[in-house]
Simulated scan of single mutants.
Amino acid sequence: METATKSRAPHLSDTQRLAWLRLIRSENVGPRTFRELFNHFGSAQAALDALPELSRRGGKKSYRLFSKDKAEAELAALYKIGARLIALGEPAYPPLLRHIDAPPPLLAVRARDPLQQELTGTQKTLAIIGARNCSAAGAKFATQLAGELSAQGFTIISGLARGIDSAAHHAALSSGTIAAFAGGIDTVYPKENLELFTGMVAANGAAISEMPISWQPRARDFPRRNRLISGMSLGVILIEAAEKSGSLHTARYALEQNREILAVPGSPLDPRSVGANKLIQQGAALVQSVDDVLDIMEPKISMSLPLHQGIEEPTINWPKLDCQDTNSPSPPLNANQQDRQAVIDALSETPIDQDELLRFTGVSLQTLQLILLEIELAGRLERHKPNKLSMIHTGTT
């Protein structure tokens, strides 16, 4: 009965997966733009066909589509190392991650059995993160906490970094642990953790990444990685987080995603504890033992998704069970030049709320969304939280 239920769950066809990959890898297309394009045109392939013209109308003379050959080569390289791409809406896609703002349309997953869905599909997940240059006491507590939480059935998620991340992964090996990568799924960073990662995969652990295979992580890629760590988790536990550390960035994502934030207090004389201590002052749950974590997290486990109304539920019209994309794009397919110019004139380098832009220009919502897509694909639009937009003057005509 269980097998039959899983077999009826939606899956992309090979053709669809290729089109999704080409779309998310094309120029100026990110997770949010992917969703807007998909919803407007009804399928990834239809959106791909429209991209060059949309970009031209937005003010860009030439547009770089991600080629079919490159997409096929990426898929082949993934399969060669035992990885695969999971689409948002498929059963193995992390359920909590689906409910963050602009979730990745495709995730590369690497595990001993790439078809195994239980690990990445679980909702009983906790992130443990902290200082790379952690103290011996910090590493010891991370090891103890991760081991005890694993014994209670939690899947531990972290970033495979040195220090606290590594200690947490090591302690959770036996029950399965997940690492989020800032680079490609084949790019273990730091390299000194290659043996740890190999052990994770051998012990039914997994790694996830939204970046292209063989992508070398840059500084700006780690915040994207951090939002995956918090997004996959019911809560984030910080151990030794300095005042301006990446761990605090993860905590901020957790706050935006309505996840629990828990912190282990440290000595006020240790700069590695300043960030965690301040989080406790600001309302984060203080953690001194596994019982503290269980008391806070147990009520969350049974909560239905989404966790609260503020978390954005993706509105993509996902493929039906026969995996056929809809061929009924939402009108309009074009906007008149008067409306387009009105929107461009209203935008400036000063961010403006989208609703205010809508009222000021007087265009319809669908027309505004289409014009914004044109400008964004041309590389001239910047989006700001929570729902603001500004124009980037690139000099391109």
Rank of each mutant, 00 (worst) to 15 (best):
A46I: 13
Q354N: 13
A83E: 08
E240Y: 04
D221H: 13
T155K: 04
D291F: 02
Q116L: 07
R259V: 07
A263L: 02
S247H: 06
R272C: 07
Y189H: 10
G58V: 10
Q309M: 08
S13F: 01
R17S: 04
L115A: 11
N204C: 10
R110E: 11
F181D: 12
Q354H: 11
I239G: 01
S304A: 12
L196W: 01
E349C: 08
I24A: 01
G275P: 03
A171F: 01
T198I: 01
I100P: 03
I156F: 00
D113V: 13
R227G: 05
S267M: 03
T394C: 08
Q216W: 00
I156L: 02
L88G: 03
L305C: 12
H11R: 15
R162T: 10
A241C: 06
S13E: 11
V293T: 07
S233I: 07
A137T: 14
L305T: 14
L160Y: 03
G121A: 08
S43L: 02
R25C: 00
E74T: 12
C134F: 03
P329F: 07
G283S: 07
A284E: 10
T394Q: 10
L126I: 13
K300W: 12
K6E: 15
G310I: 14
D355V: 11
T250W: 01
N277D: 07
L96D: 06
T315W: 01
D291S: 09
G138D: 10
L333F: 03
G130P: 07
M391S: 14
A242M: 03
E313C: 03
I164R: 03
H169P: 04
S267G: 07
Y189D: 10
I280P: 00
R383T: 14
R132S: 09
I81G: 07
R8G: 02
